[in-house]
Amino acid sequence: MKKIFGRPAGLTEIIQRYCPGCGHGIVHRLIAELLVELDIRERTVGIAPVGCSVFADEYFNCDMIQPPHGRGPAVATGIKRSRPDCVLFSYQGDGDLAAIGTAETVHAAARNEKITVIFINNAIYGMTGGQLAPTTLPGMRSTTSVKGRDVVKQGYPIKVCELLSGVDGAYYLERCAVNTPKNIIKTKKALKTAFKNQMDDKGFSLVEILSMCPTGWGVTPVQSKQWIDDVMSKYYPLGVYRDRAKEEK
């Protein structure tokens, strides 16, 4: 018998420390598969974020660097400009990318920096214990919005793909989800496009991924997967927000 699915060589053997049902593991695996399928593992440098996936530098079987919170796109810029042959991916959560690192994200896009940004949107701060994220939905409870996000006091969520759609430099923007096999297949396709764009020297590509955080949301893994369909993807519609390769055709 032949193994047709199993741990890809793009992942190390280390068992990941995520909670049961967490979407990070799924996205990690998709990236790892692409490192192998696109034959880029040996020229990739990955950027781990601060947050739950801070340990991503142990999980990806490629060169990795751990930048300050939110500064992934800046660090990626430094590496990419120094070694244009390297493939850079910056893996970031919602606090990392859409709060503390908003400026770095927007400006990397504006410069059309030839990097791949993978944005995990789970609408909550996981590692610090479930506080309000820039992507927490209106009315959604967190440990710093115990009665639900009050948009009058706490403002509105940030829709990253929509925000970056206003940045001319951005080359490719797509929002996906990893809550069902169908969505996971689409996510992998989007990630592949994002890597290919970089390999073809095209430009800034960002894939936003709606991802489960059952612990932070206070639900079971199975409920969390359903919630993305029922609630989260209604607020954050899935789809392609920018694809200059298609526009140019």
Partner: peptide, 19 residues
Amino acid sequence: IGCGYCYMICPEPAIEVYK
């Protein structure tokens, strides 16, 4: 049927599929 959906959604991955 070896569709691999279980592998696909497994965050660990703790599932292998053989054919």
